[in-house]
């Protein structure tokens, strides 16, 4: 494992910890899209079914369990927690996320490395992860003001994607048989979706002002 991959995993983990911290400390999930969180839970469940079939390393297995457990915990809190669920911006979180699921499933059935149950689910999870942030970005855009923790959550998620791209570039040059175009193309699409957010995050950081997205 190279340093970029490790930093990517760590920034991914940090983003989830920030989100859990926000929900736990403020007992509020305002500004957070339940639809994006549900999509991530689905992404992890679909991709990490290989926990039962393939073993890569203790590190990989532990991280997979952490990602599945934390994403389910977040969805549970937003839907069921007596206090937290009251702060959910339901009327702003109207993205039709079922269409994303259907489109990604259709694409996975058409484009995958092998037509087996696990491989189709794996491709589906890669495609879905690429677009899962969309409901969250739409929600931020609609609410305009972004609180600190929510802004940092999205920032670290974007950093995770950027590190993974560096990781693929590194692997491309250091490994003899490195070709995983499904991951790489989807990863590039996913990172591109953050470009706009990063731009405004950088502006607010430079001006030392509150993060605001244009209407």
């Amino acid at each position: 494992m190279n340093i970029f991959r490790f930093l990517g995993d760590m920034t991914h983990l940090i983003s989830i910890l920030i989100l859990l911290l926000k929900i736990y400390a403020t007992k509020s999930c305002s500004g957070i899209s339940l639809k994006t969180q549900e999509l991530y839970a689905l992404v992890f469940l679909a991709r990490y079914l290989d926990l039962f079939t393939d073993f890569i390393s203790v590190y990989n297995s532990v991280m997979k369990v952490v990602f599945i457990a934390s994403s389910l915990a977040i969805v549970w809190c937003m839907r069921r927690h007596r206090v937290v669920r009251r702060s959910y911006d339901k009327e702003l979180d109207t993205f039709r996320h079922y269409f994303l699921v259907a489109a990604c499933l259709a694409l996975a059935l058409l484009v995958q490395e092998k037509f087996t149950f696990l491989e189709v689910l794996w491709a589906f999870s890669i495609y879905l992860e690429a677009v899962a942030i969309l409901p969250q970005l739409v929600l931020l855009q609609r609410s305009g003001n972004v609180d600190n923790l929510t802004g940092q959550y999205v920032f670290f998620l974007g950093a995770y994607r950027a590190f993974y791209i560096l990781n693929w570039i590194y692997r491309y040059f250091t490994e003899t048989h490195f070709s995983r175009w499904i991951s790489c193309v989807s990863g590039l699409v996913q990172t591109a979706l953050y470009a706009d957010f990063f731009y405004y995050y950088f502006i607010s950081w430079k001006n030392n002002s509150k993060l605001q997205l244009p209407a």
């Binding site: 991959r5 995993d9 991914h12 290989d50 393939d54 073993f55 890569i56 990989n60 991280m63 997979k64 990602f67 490395e113 794996w122 993974y164 990781n167 048989h177 490195f178 995983r180 991951s183």
Partner: peptide, 10 residues
């Protein structure tokens, strides 16, 4: 790539 190492990322 060996079969079992194809999905070695998270």
């Amino acid at each position: 790539l060996p079969e079992e190492k194809r999905h070695d990322e998270l």
